[in-house]
Design a binder for these strands. Structure first.
Length: 868
RNA sequence: GCCGGGGUGGUGAAACUGGUAGACGCACGGGACUCAAAAUCCCGCGGAGCUUCGCUCCAUGAGGGUUCGAUUCCCUCCCCCGGCACCA
C-alpha cells in the first residue's frame, strides 16, 4: 500500500486542527514579549495571485518562527474592501459592489486558509463594514476640529477612467496610479483635503529614525516631500507693486539678469495689459494653458517664452531687469515666479542663450576662474566664492546665502523661506464604493459636520452605477436630502466618498482592538502591540500608503490614541514574482500551452520569442494560478519554493522545475521520517551512553547543531530564508546518509546512534515547521508527540557539539592554495607554521627561495610569502 | 542628468568581521532499478591545458590600486534594474 506524502489529506487535517484549537488567536500578555507581524492586506479583487502567496509566505515564516521563539505574536489579516474595481464590476456585470466584494472575500479567504497562513482570524477587519468605516468618518471630524481637514479650491488631477479626482501621490508622473497609460487632466475644483503638510517636518525628520526600512523607500519619501531651503525675495516693479520669487540660491542674487513668470501667474497677463505686447503674451499664455500638462512639464521639452514688456528692479544691483513668461516655470511650486541667474542655473542659462539675455558670473568655482558671461558653455551650479556682488564679494557662497538673507530681512524685502514639493492630501472621490464624507451643506449654516452621535453615515445600498456624470450618491435622493444638524432646516449631504487610502492608513492600529465599538481604538491594547515590528509588502506603496500611514499614526498620537510616532519599525519590500513570457510575432503573448515543444506558436507555427523574465501579469500571459499549484503540489511546496528560490527582497523567477524540486525535498523528508519513525519513538525512552561516542555519532550531532546555529542566524539576522532552507537540505542529506549506513534493519541500532539520529530528525522537523507547517505537524505527530509543534520551543544549538574537532587549514604560497592539512582545532600558530613549511606539497614552491614572511590564521590558513 | 540597488557556472543563487569562490537547488550527462515508463537512488558537472588515480593555469562586468591575501576595501570606466526629473 503506497502511503507516501499525501499533502491533500495532511493539509486539510491540520488546517482543521489549528482552527479548532484556535492556535493563532492571541491576547495581550504582559508576561511575554510581544511581536507584531503584518503583511499588507489585499484588495479583494477575486483570487489571490502569486505576489500575495509570496508576501504572505514570508510573513507566515516570520510569525511562526517568532512564536516558537517564545514571542506573543500578533499576525492579523483583513480586506482593503473599498475601491474602484467593485464599481466597475457592478457596471459591467450588474452585480452590486457589496455582493461582489463579499463574494471575493469569501473565496480569497478560503485560499488563504488553504495556504495554511497562521492568521488570527478573530481580528479580521473589512473596510467596507460600517463598523470600520464609521471611524474613518470619526477621524475626519477630529481632523476637521483641529483644522487638519479643510475644503479648498485647487487644481486637481482627474482620471477619466476612474471618473474621479486623485491625490497628487496617485497621479505621480502625470498618470493615474491604477491606469498607468491614462494621463490625468487638471481640473480646478473644490474638494476636501487633509493637511499632511502640517506634519511635513516630522515626516521628513523621522525618516532618519527608520533604520529598519530599506534605504530606497526612505529616499523616495524624502524626494516626494522635496524640501528646499532658500529665501523669498520681493522684486520691486518699475511701474509700481512688486513680484515675489522663491530661490534656493540667494547668494546668486547679484547675477539675476531677468525674471520669469509661470503662464498661470496672475501678473503674466496684467503686466502686458494695454501695451503693444498684450496680444503676444495673451496668445502664449492661452497656448500654454491648453497644452497637455505632461508634455509641458517634460524635462526635455524646448524652453519657450515671451517678454511681457515690463521690468523689475534687482533689489541689490538696482538694475532694471526684464520680466518674461515661460513654459518652464510652474505655478504650483514656490511663488510661480523666479529670478533667473543664467550663469549659475542651467535652465536659466539655456533660456538666456535662446533669447540673448545677459549672463553675469557672480560665483567663482573654487580654485579656478571661469570665463566671463558671454563665453560660458554651461552654467556653474556649484558652490564657490562670490564675485561681482558688492559688499558680499569674496564671501563663500554657503556663507553668502545666510548673509544675503540677513540683509534682505533688514531691508524688509525678503526673508528665509522653505518650500516643499508635497501638497495636502486630496481625499474626495466622485465614487460610490467608499466611506461617505460626513458633511452636510446647509444654505444658512454652510458646511456642517455630521455630529458624532449620528455616525456612521451609512452608504445607501440602492444606487445606480453609471461610470459617468459624477458622484453616484448625488443621484440617491433619500441619501442626499437631510436636515441641517445645527438649524434643522432642509440640507444636502456631501456626495463624495473618501480615498480608500484613508482605510489603510490606520487598519494596522485597528487590528489591536478590532471589536471596539465606542471608539476607534483601545489605547491600552494599542500600547501593548504597537508599533508593528515587521511590515511586509510591495514597493509600490513606498510613497502612497506608507506615507499616509505615517501621517495618520502621528495624528492618532496627537489625539491621544497611541503613544507611537512611527507605525512600522521594520519594513521588508519583497521583490516581484516573475516568469518568462512567450510572444508570437503574429499572435502576441502566448500561454505556455500555446507553444509547442519546438518553441513554435500552435496557431501559426512561427517560432515564439522567449521574452525576458518579467512580472507576472494577465496581459503577458505568464501568470501561474495558486489554485492549480495547490492542487498539484499542496501549500507547503508552494510556500517552500517561493521562499527558497530567491532572497525575499529580490525578484523571484518562477520555475516549474524548481517547484518540482521543492516537492522532492519535502517528499524526501517525509520518507525519511516515515521509514524511521519507529526508531525515533523508541529513542524517547533511552538516554545517552556515557563515555566517548563513535565518530559517526559525533559527526552527525555536529551537523545537527551547526545547522541549528545556521538556520537560527539566517532567520534572526535578515530573513535569509533561502540559505536557511539550504542548510536544512544539507541536514536532511546527512541524516539520510547516516540512516543508510546503519542498514536496512528496522530494529533500532545502538542507543547513541538512535539518539543522535532522533535528535537530528527532531531538529529538522522543528526548523522546517515555519516553512512547511502542515508537513511538520504531521511528522511531529508521527514521531509520537501529541502537542502542536508550534507549542514547542525553537531548538538551541550546543556550541560545544557544533564545534569541529579537526579543521582544514589551507596552505598558501604567495596567496595561492598549494595544500590542505587536517589538524586538531586550536593547533598553535607555531605548530601550524612548522607543519606548513614541512609540507611536501608546499616545498616545490618554496624550495630555494627565501621565506620573507609567514602569515598564520589559526584554524584557517597559513600563507608563506617567498621572494620570487 | 541625479539618487538607490545590482553585474559570480548552462541556470536560481551561496560565501560570517578581507582568509579554501561556486554551499544548496534546478537543468544537463552517465549509471542502477524496471518488460517499459514514471517515481526513486548513485556518480559527474566553471573553463582551458597537461606527462590525467593527479596536477597546472585562467576565472566573480572591464581596467587600475591597497594588501601576505580582494567577489569583499579604494579609484576610473562599461552595462542592467528601479525611482525621481525644467521643483527655481
Amino acid at each position: 500500500m503506497a502511503r507516501g506524502y499525501d499533502f491533500t489529506r495532511i493539509e486539510a487535517k491540520w488546517q482543521e486542527v489549528w482552527e479548532a484549537q484556535r492556535l493563532f488567536a492571541v491576547t495581550e500578555d504582559p508576561a511575554r514579549p510581544k511581536y507584531y507581524c503584518l503583511e499588507m492586506y489585499p484588495y479583494p479583487s477575486g483570487k489571490i495571485h502569486m505576489g500575495h502567496v509570496r508576501n504572505y509566505s514570508i510573513g507566515d515564516v516570520v510569525a511562526r518562527y517568532l512564536t516558537m521563539r517564545g514571542f506573543n505574536v500578533l499576525h492579523p489579516m483583513g480586506w482593503d474592501a473599498f475601491g474602484f474595481p467593485a464599481e466597475n464590476a457592478a457596471f459591467e456585470h450588474g452585480v452590486h459592489p457589496a455582493r461582489w466584494t463579499t463574494d471575493n472575500i469569501a473565496y480569497m479567504k478560503s485560499q488563504l486558509r488553504r495556504m495554511g497562513f497562521s492568521y488570527d482570524w478573530s481580528r479580521e477587519v473589512t473596510c467596507c463594514d460600517p463598523a470600520y468605516y464609521r471611524w474613518n468618518q470619526w477621524f475626519f471630524l477630529k481632523l476637521l476640529e483641529r483644522g487638519l481637514a479643510y475644503r479648498g479650491r485647487a487644481p486637481v488631477n482627474w482620471c477619466e477612467l476612474c471618473q474621479s479626482v486623485l491625490s497628487n501621490e496617485q497621479a505621480e508622473g502625470g498618470v493615474c496610479w491604477r491606469h498607468t497609460d491614462t494621463p490625468v487632466v487638471q481640473k480646478e475644483l473644490e474638494q476636501w483635503f487633509l493637511k499632511i503638510t502640517a506634519y511635513v517636518e516630522e515626516l521628513l525628520g523621522d525618516l532618519e529614525t527608520l533604520t529598519g526600512w530599506p534605504e530606497r523607500v526612505r529616499v523616495m519619501q524624502r524626494n516626494w516631500i522635496g524640501k528646499s531651503v532658500g529665501a523669498e525675495v520681493d522684486f520691486p516693479l518699475v511701474d509700481g507693486g512688486s513680484l515675489r520669487i522663491f530661490t534656493t540660491r540667494p547668494d546668486t542674487l547679484f547675477g539675476a539678469t531677468f525674471m520669469v513668470l509661470a503662464p498661470e501667474h496672475p501678473l503674466a497677463l496684467s503686466l502686458s495689459a494695454g501695451t503693444p505686447r498684450e496680444s503676444t503674451v495673451r496668445e502664449f499664455v492661452a497656448r500654454m494653458r491648453r497644452a497637455d500638462r505632461a508634455v509641458r512639464t517634460d524635462a526635455t521639452a524646448e524652453k519657450e517664452g515671451v517678454f511681457t514688456g515690463a521690468s523689475a528692479v534687482n533689489p541689490l544691483t538696482r538694475e532694471r531687469i526684464p520680466i518674461w513668461v515661460a513654459n518652464f516655470v510652474l505655478m504650483e511650486y514656490g511663488t510661480g515666479a523666479i529670478m533667473a541667474v543664467p550663469a549659475h542655473d542651467q535652465r536659466d542659462f539655456d533660456f538666456a542663450r535662446l533669447y540673448r539675455l545677459p549672463i553675469r558670473v557672480v560665483i567663482q568655482p573654487p580654485g579656478g576662474a571661469q570665463g566671463s558671461g558671454e563665453s560660458l558653455e554651461a552654467a556653474y551650479e556649484g558652490e564657490g566664492s562670490m564675485v561681482n556682488s558688492g559688499a558680499f564679494s569674496g564671501m563663500a557662497s554657503e556663507e553668502g546665502k545666510l548673509a544675503v538673507c540677513q540683509f534682505l530681512e533688514e531691508q524688509g524685502i525678503g526673508k528665509r523661506a522653505v518650500n516643499y514639493r508635497i501638497r495636502d492630501w486630496l481625499i474626495s472621490r466622485q465614487r460610490y464604493w467608499g466611506t461617505p464624507i460626513p458633511i452636510i451643506y446647509c444654505d444658512t449654516c454652510g458646511s456642517v459636520p455630521v455630529p458624532e452621535r449620528d455616525l456612521p453615515v451609512i452608504l445607501p445600498p440602492d444606487v445606480a452605477i453609471t461610470m459617468s456624470g459624477g458622484s453616484p450618491l448625488a443621484r440617491v435622493e433619500e441619501f442626499v436630502r437631510t436636515t441641517c444638524p445645527s438649524c434643522r432646516r432642509p440640507a444636502r449631504r456631501e456626495t463624495d466618498t473618501m480615498d480608500t487610502f484613508v482605510d489603510s492608513s490606520w487598519y494596522f492600529l485597528r487590528f489591536t482592538s478590532p471589536h471596539e465599538t465606542t471608539r476607534p481604538l483601545d489605547p491600552g491594547t494599542v500600547q501593548y502591540w504597537m508599533p508593528v515590528d515587521q511590515y511586509i509588502g510591495g514597493i509600490e506603496h513606498a510613497v502612497l500608503h506608507l506615507l499616509y500611514a505615517r501621517f495618520f499614526t502621528k495624528v492618532c498620537r496627537d489625539l491621544g490614541l497611541t503613544g507611537v510616532s512611527e507605525p512600522f519599525s521594520n519594513l521588508l519590500t519583497q521583490g516581484m514574482v516573475c516568469k518568462e513570457s512567450y510572444r508570437c510575432p503574429e499572435h502576441g503573448y502566448r500561454l505556455p500551452g500555446e507553444v509547442d515543444k519546438q518553441g513554435r506558436c500552435t496557431e501559426c507555427q512561427r517560432p515564439v520569442e522567449i521574452g525576458r523574465t518579467e512580472k507576472m501579469s494577465k496581459s503577458k500571459r505568464n501568470v501561474v494560478d495558486p489554485d492549480d499549484l495547490l492542487e498539484r503540489y499542496g501549500a507547503d511546496t508552494i510556500r517552500l519554493f517561493s521562499l527558497f528560490a530567491a532572497p525575499p527582497e529580490k525578484d523571484l523567477e518562477w520555475s516549474d522545475e524548481g517547484v518540482q524540486g521543492s516537492f522532492r525535498f519535502l517528499s524526501r523528508v517525509w520518507r525519511l521520517v516515515e521509514d524511521r519513525a519507529a526508531w525515533i519513538r523508541a529513542a524517547r525512552d533511552l538516554s545517552w551512553d556515557d563515555g566517548v561516542h563513535a565518530e559517526a555519532v559525533r559527526a552527525l550531532r555536529r551537523v545537527t547543531h551547526q545547522t541549528i546555529a545556521r538556520v537560527t542566524r539566517d532567520l534572526e539576522d535578515a530573513f535569509h530564508f533561502n540559505t536557511a532552507l539550504a542548510a536544512l537540505m544539507e541536514l536532511l542529506n546527512a541524516l539520510n546518509k547516516f540512516q543508510e549506513e546503519l542498514g536496512a534493519d528496522p530494529a533500532p541500532p545502538r542507543r547513541n546512534r538512535v539518539l543522535a539520529f532522533a535528535e537530528g530528525v527532531s531538529a529538522l522537523v522543528t526548523m522546517l515547521a515555519p516553512f512547511a507547517p502542515h508537513l511538520a505537524e504531521e511528522l511531529w505527530e508521527m514521531l509520537g508527540h501529541r502537542e502542536s509543534i508550534f507549542r514547542r520551543p525553537w531548538p538551541v544549538a550546543d556550541a560545544a557539539l557544533a564545534q569541529a574537532e579537526t579543521v582544514e587549514v589551507v596552505v598558501q604560497v604567495n596567496g595561492k592554495v598549494r595544500s590542505r592539512q587536517h589538524v586538531p582545532r586550536g593547533t598553535a600558530e607555531d605548530r601550524l607554521r612548522e607543519l606548513a613549511l614541512a609540507d611536501p606539497r608546499v616545498q616545490p614552491w618554496t624550495g630555494g627561495k627565501a621565506v620573507r614572511k609567514v602569515v598564520v590564521i589559526p584554524d584557517k590558513l597559513v600563507n608563506i610569502v617567498v621572494t620570487s
